[in-house]
């Protein structure tokens, strides 16, 4: 069986981003997509995504539950998360 030409990605949001964008959504993107291009594509979905994922905002990211920057490669089935700076402790 050939590898799929698209990757299906699970996108999760936490804290203030979750309140506006929802807890999670599934996105299909071309093979080879990086975290940065995923963020670009999400910002095109609607005004809320554009505002809350804007690079004017402090948004942190994780890929498969590890902190990541926008150059991070993805994979089919990856779990990507966007959230504000952390404030535990």
């Amino acid at each position: 069986m050939n590898a799929p030409a698209i990757w299906r990605l699970r996108v999760r949001y936490f804290a203030s981003l979750r309140e506006v964008l929802g807890a999670e959504e599934t996105v299909e993107l071309p093979v080879g997509t990086t975290l940065g291009t995923l963020r670009d594509r999400l910002m095109l979905l609607d005004a809320d995504h554009a505002q809350w994922l804007s690079r004017q905002r402090a948004v942190r990211c994780a890929v498969d539950q590890v902190m990541a920057d926008e150059s991070a490669p993805l994979r089919d089935g990856a779990e990507v998360a966007f959230f504000p700076p952390v404030t535990g402790g």
């Binding site: 936490f14 804290a15 203030s16 402090a58 504000p84 700076p85 952390v86 404030t87 535990g88 402790g89």
Partner: peptide
């Protein structure tokens, strides 16, 4: 461990004040 946890562990605090609930801002000092 505490210095690490404050800035790298995914937790988010939401405070309730007289003006309503607000997400706590991260601190440069951390």
């Amino acid at each position: 461990l505490m210095d690490y946890l404050k800035t790298q562990a995914p937790f988010w605090k939401k405070e309730t004040t007289a003006d309503g609930a607000r997400w706590v801002d991260a601190r440069q000092a951390d």
